[in-house]
Amino acid sequence: MHKKIMYVCNMANSKLYKGSLTTIILKLLNESEKMYGYEMTQKVKAITKGELNITEGALYPALHKLEAEGLLDVEVKKVDNRLRKYYKLTEKGNKETVSKLEELKDYIKTMETFMNPKLSLD
């Protein structure tokens, strides 16, 4: 029976991705007004074509930490017979997103330079 079902017991993603989880969450919320946990995991999966899979065990503690730091605001709504917790960026969260994305861009640029060094004789 289990073979029919498409749940995949995914292996943990690389530690490199784990270090960027906060930035990923902030970027997702920056592009939507509000999102809930499951929606975030599916959006990341879709954008990365299944390359990146965020587990609940990593996502929710990160969301709660951002909420405690005042970067996220929450709203609980009743949807389809259950309560759903939506997350959205606060003003502080918006500022932090800009700074985190800049930081990530710099990091990627540095890593690209490191991986493809253009050596010169000068």
Partner: peptide, 20 residues
């Protein structure tokens, strides 16, 4: 509450894919 919503969303997506 958050776990229930996550599991329910995952199950709904799975049930959409298979009628059996």
């Amino acid at each position: 509450m958050e776990m229930v919503d996550h599991i329910a969303s995952a199950l709904e997506a799975e049930l959409e894919l298979s009628n059996e």
